[in-house]
Design a protein around this nucleic acid. Structure first.
Lengths: 212, 212
DNA sequence: TTTTCTATTGTCCCATGGGACAATGCGAAC
DNA sequence: GTTCGCATTGTCCCATGGGACAATAGAAAA
């Protein structure tokens, strides 16, 4: 699987060694002497890739960089490279979403296998994220009012109930509802609910408080 | 948080030592000299608990036991206790769902903190699993025919379309649909779709192939 | 054999959803 | 000042959903 491998390590000779091995395997490589360098020049999320990250580096540490990237919504998989076995750190890194943790020195098989897994994972994640973003983008196009109607409709409210809740005529709700279905490109209520569920809306059921 | 801690370790003196520490902290403790012993006498999933599991034990290893438990659907959190730092094993354990990995000798703070996290996690998981099981149980009560109707309805098919698809009258579908709503205890299509989504049905959209 | 469950279908009727066609009022942008 | 997007509401009409009441038929269970 082709991809860009981002190596973050303060040890220049190590970077070069790893870079050479990866390039030989056909990967595109970018190297960074520190976490900050990577943050300053954020890799595009649009191309397949992963990060090979040293745990202990001057300045921002590996796990710290992991946290920053996570905060800004990055889904670039991270493979940690650590000088010595530290179970505590390993556990935290994996739980924080790291793809793998390898110990130096790392064999080429280990390294390449981990990178392949990371790239495959990134592939998957990107697919999922794209789906989600497409849906979110559609929802973002709703006007505030349409959004309100949307929220109630996907919870099973009838037009009449929505009308009462929002202080408008049933006819008006019908119009909003129509535009919602149009903008979200769905033909049925089922699809609308399904879409809302996938978009992460709809967490609290909020029953069907009959108030005809 | 009260709970039953299941200790699996072949070292009797270690078991006893940990047991004493946990009992002092107010936990109920059960000890097992091997993974097989725990499998033979499976802890009830109904009570809050977690497993303290040695990685290297004669017979079934810790990770192997983890695999077995996972296969049979156990959600008891596992905290591994390992004699020496093994990053490879640690990564696998955590990725396989282990709650934590601690190295021996383990401090009481570390141990108790991990146990508390494990219990809290178990609490959460049990809640989620119960929700899911309630829904699944409801769905399981559907007759085969009702199930077919259900599957199509939650994908946005109209009664007419379902009738054509299943070779029955629209009226018949209406009857089935009614019983589905009744059995699944929902009042609206939106709730039905929502429920299906939560139950894990509904993965492939399968559009709204208009075939009136 | 009788009961029970499941699947099937009917009719009558009303509430709800949704398309077509049309229009008004109000801010904000140009 | 005019245009544009948004919210609002109307009427007419039809398709669909869904409740009420009722009934038939086959298969499985008691």
């Amino acid at each position: 699987m082709a991809g860009v491998i981002h190596i973050v390590d303060d040890d220049a000779s190590f970077r070069t060694a790893i870079e050479r091995r990866l390039k030989k395997a056909g990967y595109v490589v970018a190297t960074y002497p520190s976490a900050q360098h990577l943050l300053d020049c954020l890799p595009s999320e649009n191309e397949l890739g992963c990060i090979l990250l040293d745990v202990r580096i001057p300045g921002l540490s590996g796990p710290e960089l992991q946290g920053r990237l996570s905060e800004i919504g990055s889904i670039l998989p991270i493979v940690f490279l650590t000088g010595y076995a530290d179970v505590q750190t390993t556990v935290r890194a994996i739980k924080a979403g790291a793809e793998d943790v390898l110990t130096k020195p790392v064999s080429s098989e280990e390294l390449l296998a981990a990178v392949e897994r990371a790239l495959a994972h990134h592939q998957l994640m990107r697919g999922q994220r794209n789906q989600l973003e497409i849906v979110r983008a559609l929802i973002a196009k709703l006007t505030p009012r349409e959004r309100e109607v949307f929220e109630l409709v996907i919870r099973g409210k009838t037009n009449k109930q929505v009308a009462n809740a929002l202080g408008a005529t049933e006819r008006t709700i019908k119009a909003h509802r129509h535009r919602v279905m149009e903008k979200l490109q769905v033909q049925s209520l089922a699809e609308l609910v399904s879409l809302a569920e996938r978009a992460g809306i709809l967490s609290s059921p909020s029953g069907t408080g009959q108030t005809n």
